[in-house]
Amino acid sequence: MPYLLLAGAIVLEVLATINLRLSEGFSRLAPSVLVVVGYLGAFGLLSQVLKAGVPVGLAYGIWAAAGVALVAIVGAVFLGDTQTPVQYGGIALVIAGVLALELGGTH
């Protein structure tokens, strides 16, 4: 269950971050509202994940890495952002680092 909440937190964070760009400096109402609601929801869900006992380093690492990767992909696919192979390699390294945190931990 905590990892389902974490997935929800990631989705809300990505939604908020993409709308941060679309808000054009908070000059557009609908995207601006989605930024605030998305981040509040993301942090609320993340706090529930931590309350459920997921270690903070692991939860935040997964949340941050997945968020970075998904925002970069959404930006490239839907917003016309350009990504170089080096940038994709960097995203892969971030994800690999989170995996190392999980796999290297004692269970």
Rank of each mutant, 00 (worst) to 15 (best):
V33Y: 09
V11M: 14
L5R: 03
L103H: 11
A9F: 03
V56S: 00
A30H: 01
Y60N: 09
L58E: 11
G67W: 00
I91T: 13
L45Q: 11
A16W: 14
L70A: 15
T17K: 02
L70W: 08
G53E: 05
G104S: 13
V94K: 01
V71A: 12
A30L: 09
L5Q: 14
Y88M: 06
F26M: 14
P85Q: 05
L12M: 15
T82E: 03
A42D: 10
G97I: 06
F78W: 14
P31R: 07
A59K: 10
L70G: 12
P55Y: 04
S32H: 06
L79K: 01
V77L: 15
L99F: 00
G25I: 07
G25L: 08
Q48T: 07
Q48L: 15
V86S: 00
G57S: 13
Y88R: 01
L50D: 11
Y88H: 08
L45Y: 06
L12Q: 13
M1S: 15
I91R: 07
S27E: 04
G25W: 02
L103K: 13
Q87M: 06
L58W: 03
S32L: 05
G105L: 04
A16S: 14
Y60K: 07
F26I: 09
L4F: 15
A65V: 00
G38P: 12
V35E: 07
L15R: 09
V54K: 10
A42E: 14
A100N: 08
R28T: 01
Y88L: 14
V11D: 10
V35G: 09
L101Q: 12
S23M: 07
A66P: 04
N19R: 08
A76S: 14
Q87Y: 03
A64K: 04
L103F: 09
P55L: 02
P55W: 02
A96M: 11
A64R: 08
R21M: 01
L70H: 09
E13T: 10
Y60A: 10
A76V: 08
E24Q: 11
L34M: 13
L29M: 03
L103V: 13
L5H: 02
